[in-house]
Design a protein around this nucleic acid. Sequence first.
DNA 1: TGTACATCAGTGAACGCGCGTTCACTGATGTAC
DNA 2: TGTACATCAGTGAACGCGCGTTCACTGATGTAC
Lengths: 217, 217
Amino acid sequence: MSWSKDDKQGPRGYHHGNLKEALVRAALELIAQKGPAGFTFAEAARWAGVSPAAPYRHFRDRDELLASVALRGFNQFETALSRAWDDGRPELFVAFDRLGKAYLDFARNEPAYYSAMFEAGISLASNPELREAGDRAFAVLRAAAEKICARASGQTKPPTLMVALHIWAISHGIASLFGRGDAARRTLPMSPEDLLEAQMLIYLRGLGVPDVKSAAG
Amino acid sequence: MSWSKDDKQGPRGYHHGNLKEALVRAALELIAQKGPAGFTFAEAARWAGVSPAAPYRHFRDRDELLASVALRGFNQFETALSRAWDDGRPELFVAFDRLGKAYLDFARNEPAYYSAMFEAGISLASNPELREAGDRAFAVLRAAAEKICARASGQTKPPTLMVALHIWAISHGIASLFGRGDAARRTLPMSPEDLLEAQMLIYLRGLGVPDVKSAAG
DNA sequence: TGTACATCAGTGAACGCGCGTTCACTGATGTAC
DNA sequence: TGTACATCAGTGAACGCGCGTTCACTGATGTAC
């Protein structure tokens, strides 16, 4: 589908009304088709049904548009993760399992967002807003890590931050290598979901978090 | 440094002598500077000190050159990994630790190769040679997983393939998120090496592989 | 050792194309009074 | 409610540029005899 003016009923008139939004969506669609490298400023404008000069009213250049896509991606990512986690309800391991699957779902169903967020090479150092959005998404993993750590049986609790980073790395590793929704996916004799679940269980056991059989099924 | 004809002493004459090699190196350098999207066929030719038509004698198009870079990357990756692993000598955990660090080293020191191999969006399905090179690198991780699994104390040994994939995912996750050598790296309050080592130890404990204190230091 | 010839691996000029970007402009919208 | 005006968000024409690609060509290399 297209987000150009023709989608809305009737002529759009001189002003687009929501061009910034339309350009982000156009970029997203083009990334999905051809990768983060595969879209141009002019093409996004054409897709939005607007002259090639129009995007300059909203974005300095292509990179700013790309960053905008990534920003929106992180926001949606955060929403998806926190909805899945749901503060650990109704039960820690059930919610934790959902969280991992939500990560994989996002990578598979939103490959355009995912590559803009993680593979487009946008510098985080020069883009604080983007980094903060990433941090907010990470905060969901951190909240989960906190509850996990509280369950650890050892005398010294594992550090929350470390566990959160481990969870992130595991999910990201499996999603990037085996769970992506594009042509670069590696095929496997098992589903990414099963692989991730098994890995998480082994990791939790190693942390000293008591097994919950119902979560393994 | 440049790999154009001027590097070699004396004029190169009509024939370059090793243009294919020079083009791969040029592409690699340009990827390092500007990401996998940031190089063109013409630019690689210019870098190699050759007319824009010359590359067509060696590569059908830009994608074939990019795939060639990735292929070479996987070969070097395999070499680095198997050298680090060294068949598990002198001791399993020492070698395993080296293997993980070699993975991180490669991602950090060869960001151009790394992104060509994992993030350039090259389709593995349509490039069997590349997939095989990737499989050969993965075989090193698989060999390590085999020895790890043999040490597992439980009644049923964990499946080697699964463990190998887990090792890959952990390493790749940490390398991609925190260990990259370019601007997209996320900063951390700990080194990627420490983070990876801690995660591997937790994972091995979860697998039921007896702890080796000397490997934790 | 020399010569003739085939093949290889480059040249350089040319082309059409789409991109990024600027510019003066103009239609639409919002607001003060 | 109407009018004047400022501001906003688009147009469309234009430009220079570098890219991808083709082409007839040519210099260098290898080989048969």
